[in-house]
Design a protein around this nucleic acid. Structure first.
Length: 421
RNA sequence: GGAGAGGUGGCAGAGCGGUCGAAUGCGGCGGUCUCGAAAACCGUUUCGGGCUUAUGGUCCGACGGGGGUUCAAAUCCCCCCCUCUCCGCCA
């Protein structure tokens, strides 16, 4: 959520920033509604003050055993009814204003490139793209050859975009998770296994609602939602709290299964486990100060790159264009791994600086002198297990159908190589 | 799922129709004392919002959340959420 005071004080700057994202249209509606709200609020508050004065007078009189002027009670009653009516108007106006305000996305950082999905700016390429003179296999063929994947039966059980991950890939997945948690703990992140079913408030607070509601699974009878990322429960961990600035930055590593409806993605990435409804992920999340958030963003990105380097996966880093940022992000970097089976780089991790956007919605603040200000929040993928498995299998495949496993994972229970059945 | 108890400031805990944003204790912060510290004593200590461009003032709101009764609600009524105890069920 944007700072309403900033919108009032400097609407032109906010409008300009929003129009970069093609989303400035509703700003003037917000301003107009806000004008109404403030006017009505003033009159409501004046009436309430007057009501309290009369009520206190009556109270004092009764206590002193003096008679109460019935005209006073009549006047108080009239005032109350009028106030109630005006409060109704105020409530409606504020609800309208806030509903619109909730839809406005975060203001992008000036450095973020203009444009949409195809306008991400490549920052660097790291690692050597492998060559396969004897031909290249994609992850589905490799994984099935290893006895590690069953998509057909998963479709029978759950539908498309689900998978049975089996046999050797289970140990590989577990080693990826423990490796990542181990590394993140060393970097000061507290491991967390959060709830993956959350209330609507957590999704509103993190900015997934109202904009991306169609991407989220909803339970039929419990008003609970399956999270698409542990970012949601991690951000909500400090909802409605005032954090001590001395405790910042607070870093958490969430380990969870993620659920995505992938509505609107019909026909895209239909092969294999690249885009599925359910996957596991280790996620970084930081609460920090406004001054430190950009440095923290770089820190998170550096950890993502270190992980890909540790795994010998060639990748590139892109600076995502404003039109492709989620509602909450002010800046986003993606790491895209080279995927030989697709002959291109594909997103495997993503890190966003959400500045004060989520914190304001979640009312997560810190004290500074007399001021209470929203903190800054950041999130980044440490390991999206499914996509990382794809990158590992495809990049480290050998002509005989076996797959070499990076050394770092062997310390966490992965075998040195996976052999075909 | 059934029965009961309860949710008040950072914590503990009183208040159960009127001047209560709320006693008291602990903790925190500032001070007195001290070479310094402890103790003791004094003072201070919630959050959100409107107006006022002061960096201060003023007003409104908030006692789990939302409605209602009343001139007046922490206090009475209704709904919801949460916590605890017992029973049932269960990994």
């Amino acid at each position: 959520m944007l700072d309403l005071r900033l919108i009032r004080r400097d609407p032109d700057t906010v409008r300009a920033a929003l129009s970069r994202r093609g989303d400035a249209a509703r700003l003037d509606d917000v301003l107009a509604l806000d004008e109404t709200c403030r006017g009505v609020r003033m009159s409501v508050e004046e009436m309430r003050a007057e009501s309290t004065r009369i009520a206190k007078g009556i109270g004092q009189a009764k206590k002193a055993g003096e008679p109460v002027d019935p005209a006073q009670e009549t006047e108080a009653r009239r005032l109350r009814d009028e106030t109630t009516a005006q409060e109704e108007v105020l409530r409606a106006a504020e609800a309208d204003r806030d509903a619109l305000l909730l839809q406005l996305p975060n203001l992008a950082q000036a450095e973020a490139p203009d444009g949409g999905e195809d306008d991400a700016l490549e920052l660097r390429r790291v690692g050597e793209i492998p060559t396969f003179p004897g031909g290249v296999l994609d992850h589905v063929t490799i994984a099935e050859g290893l006895g590690g994947l069953d998509l057909e039966r998963a479709a029978r059980t759950s539908g498309s975009r689900f998978a049975y991950l089996m046999g050797p890939l289970v140990r590989l997945q577990m080693s990826l998770v423990t490796y990542a948690v181990d590394l993140l703990e060393g970097e000061g992140f507290i491991p967390v296994i959060p709830p993956v079913l959350v209330r609507e408030e957590a999704l509103l607070g993190t900015g997934f609602f109202p904009t991306d509601r169609s991407a989220i699974y909803e339970t039929a009878s419990d008003d609970l939602f399956l999270v698409g990322t542990s970012e949601v429960p991690l951000a909500a961990l400090h909802q409605d709290e005032i954090l001590d600035e001395a405790d910042l930055p607070l870093r958490y590593a969430g380990i969870s299964t993620c659920f995505r409806r992938e509505a609107g993605a019909a026909g895209r990435d239909t092969r294999g486990i690249f885009r599925v409804h359910q996957f596991d992920k280790v996620e970084m999340f930081t609460f920090t100060t406004p001054e430190q958030s950009e440095a923290e963003h770089q820190r998170i990105l550096a950890i993502e790159e270190r992980i890909l380097s540790d795994l010998n996966i060639p990748y590139r880093v892109v600076d995502v264009a404003v039109g492709d940022l989620g509602a909450s992000a002010a800046r986003k970097f993606d790491c895209e791994a080279w995927m030989p089976g697709q002959d291109r780089y594909r997103e495997v991790t993503s890190c966003s600086n959400c500045t004060d956007y989520q914190a304001r919605r979640l009312r997560c603040r810190t004290k500074r002198g007399k001021d209470t200000l929203p903190v800054h929040t950041l999130n980044g993928t440490a390991v999206a297990v499914g996509r990382t498995l794809i990158a590992l299998l495809e990049n480290h495949q050998r002509p005989d159908g076996s797959v070499g496993i990076p050394e770092v994972l062997q310390a966490f229970g992965a075998p040195p190589e996976l052999k075909p059945r």
